[in-house]
């Protein structure tokens, strides 16, 4: 443990007193700012968060586009597999013929 008894820095801190000027309108000012934010138009809100909003929009467009494309390709793959089977079932007698069981 250090001994602070004769530390000039500790003495200066101990003597330090903060006496801020009183601001009677401080509380009202805070509420006024809260109210102003609450009534802020949406466009102003978006402009104030332009970078975040822009990045979010880019991400949403990229993800939405990718998901839409993947869904379309998945559906095409399913339909193509179905039609391949339909086509083969039309031309392959081995699939159409009965297995001989009554």
């Amino acid at each position: 443990m250090m001994n602070h008894t004769n530390d000039p820095f500790s003495e200066a801190l101990a003597d330090w007193r903060v006496n801020p000027p009183r601001d009677p309108s401080f509380r009202a000012g805070v509420w006024a700012r809260v109210e102003a934010l609450r009534r802020e138009p949406w466009a102003a809100y978006v402009r104030r968060h332009a970078l975040t909003s822009g990045l979010a929009l880019l991400a949403v467009v990229a993800v939405g586009g990718w998901v839409g494309m993947r869904q379309a390709h998945a559906r095409a793959d399913r339909d193509r597999a179905l039609l391949v089977q339909v086509y083969l079932s039309e031309i392959d007698s081995r699939l159409v013929a009965t297995d001989g069981t009554p």
């Binding site: 939405g64 586009g65 839409g68 494309m69 379309a72 095409a76």
Partner: peptide
Amino acid sequence: AVALACYRWHCD
């Protein structure tokens, strides 16, 4: 909207 548009765009 973008997902739907891309889905329709890529639909065969």
